[in-house]
Design a protein around this nucleic acid. Structure first.
Lengths: 344, 344
DNA sequence: CTGAAAGCGCTAACAC
DNA sequence: GTGTTAGCGCTTTCAG
């Protein structure tokens, strides 16, 4: 038998509304009665039913967080940061994982709608498939913030990294080190970050006069495994580029594994740069040169933005935050300009 | 204005209950009316309010997952596996992060109670502080499964790793390699896993005649940073053990960082074994010998057990699953028995 | 200071 | 096949 306000009321022979007032600390209950009520509630193990309460009050104090992949420390850390912002404000959250699947994204978003979350933090799968649903969320007035990825056609506040800028830093560096050819292990192609990084890399490489052959571009599908296979494919090519750009952190693991198995040494046989800096980048042999994003900061900012638009629903500023990356030079890129007479 | 069943009913000039029947696919509505209802629901962007529905029906199709740390890939992967079990069965989940804080654990559990989750998957903070609350959850008949850690005094089903067995494997191996002294970087001391691994290590080391000085045991607090500091502390000691046991994966990162900074080479200056095998263990230089747990399997099993006790609430089997670890020999332990006349 | 009554959105039992 | 009614647990007027 569930412990309800009604039940407590019956036991104490008072009205449910009185119990409610007492429990919520509202005025209009004598100290004595209040204490008696609190005591029985405690004894009986009473917990307010937030479904019922929120049905009356509106807010569920609940938000939805939608990410593509739990296994990626980037997202795990972003969520961790969000939690640290949301928890102190009394919010709980549903965690939804899309695995880059539009259908899963759809179902999850619909559920969040049904759960009447107060807001949604989403890293959407792509820019097309569920755009209608995101629009619907928006038109229902449910606060929504995109993070890491965004749907450019939608006027939704967002917190993302400046992918273009990050990629440019890497390309410029490669050029400076004398590299004239480039291979790329790409993210899931339809994703925002996937597009951004790939396009930026190709554009910039071309601008700098670097060669990027079609068959040097392999789809790593955003995952460790995908990148492992992509790298294996790439190294089957007869002619290879001198430098390789890996589009995220977990794919770097896959690429490294492939390199190890094929006994291809970095940076002697091929140079390597990556987007993202997970701890393993510094521990690899050699440590990997990269541009770093800060998932914690991203998560914190996104969550703060969301809380803000929950608090001020009419403030239609629809602003976006774009975080710069941080270039970190390590030892995975060979300087081709000074090693022409090297010892091999 | 919210789109409700009532609203649709008004527009179509039918009764709410008819709309409900139509939407839920129940018999007793003419095809024509049903289609009309479905169409308007679609047009208006109707989503059923699960609060209201569950208030009537009981189940919220929601579960709570409580973990100590998002940043640890072990837990991230366990949660990922749980999600893969729960999602297809139509469950959403609240993710709660304790950060090894009893107070946070308490608040989160109480919220889960208030949210009327159908079940809880928990890796509890310790064996003492919130035991009453866990008991209450149990007595309320809310399905509960512990994973990774458990509260031994409570008759609650669980899925954990055989910590003792794992530690024994490591200790026996060290002994076999000729090590006679041992340092330990410990987990958060009050946690179940913290206790288990530490006690097992000390016991086994003593049994094997290995020396474990009090000041060779440093508290790594389960975190990368904690372990980093603990390792720095340890290496201030004048006399050092020949081998070091690190009690989990993320702490290994901290220890490695400290070792690098201090230019202490593994395994020449000190040998290293760890509990857990994250990908970085294989990539380190040298690759690290360890016992591996499988967080995915653990998560999958725990989630399956929970679903089972949701489905069959009366089945009081209260069983536990104990997973064996898998010993992986790599290159972080020096064989002291054959290097006495080595080249240094 | 306390009680009575209405209603949040939905469903199910019961009428017709 | 469709409508009526009651109620899940809670809060909030409005009475008294």
């Amino acid at each position: 038998m569930k412990v309800t306000i009604k039940r407590i009321a019956e036991i104490l022979k008072v009205n449910p509304s009185t119990v409610s007032r007492a429990l919520r600390g509202k005025p209009g209950v004598s100290e004595e009665l209040r204490n008696k009520i609190l005591r029985t509630a405690e004894e009986l193990g009473y917990y307010p039913d937030t479904r019922a309460r929120s049905l009356k009050e509106g807010s569920t104090r609940t938000i939805g967080i939608l990410i593509p992949d739990m296994g990626n420390p980037f997202f795990a850390n972003a969520v961790a940061a969000m939690e640290r912002v949301l928890f102190p404000m009394g919010y709980s959250f549903f965690l939804c994982v899309t695995e880059e699947d539009n259908e899963k994204e759809r179902i999850n978003l619909q559920k969040l709608l049904s759960y009447n979350v107060d807001g949604i933090l989403a890293a959407p799968v792509d820019r097309i498939k569920n755009i209608k649903l995101y629009k619907q969320i928006q038109s229902k007035g449910i606060p929504l913030v995109f993070f890491d990825r965004r749907i450019v056609d939608l006027k939704v506040p967002y917190a993302v990294t400046d992918n273009r800028d990050g990629v440019y830093k890497l390309m410029d560096y490669l050029k400076k080190m004398g590299h004239e050819s480039l291979g790329i292990i790409t993210l899931h192609r339809e994703s925002y970050t996937g597009m951004e990084r790939l396009n930026a890399a190709i554009e910039r490489a071309k601008e700098l006069g670097m060669e990027v052959r079609e068959n040097w571009i392999k789809d790593g599908k955003s995952t460790q495994r995908g990148a492992y296979e992509a790298a294996k494919e790439l190294f089957k090519e007869r002619k290879l580029p001198t430098a390789l750009f890996v589009c995220n952190n977990v794919m770097t693991l896959g690429v490294m594994k492939a390199l190890k198995e094929l006994s291809i040494s970095v940076p002697d046989s091929i140079s390597l740069v990556t987007f993202d800096d997970s701890f393993w980048n510094q521990i690899f042999d050699p440590p990997v040169t990269c541009v770093a994003q800060d998932p914690m900061q991203l998560g914190m900012i996104a969550a703060t933005m969301l809380l803000n638009s929950i608090k001020y629903p009419d403030q239609q500023e629809q602003d976006g935050v774009i975080l710069k990356t941080h270039f970190i030079e390590r030892y995975s890129v060979k300087n081709l300009l000074i090693t022409t007479n090297g010892e091999g």
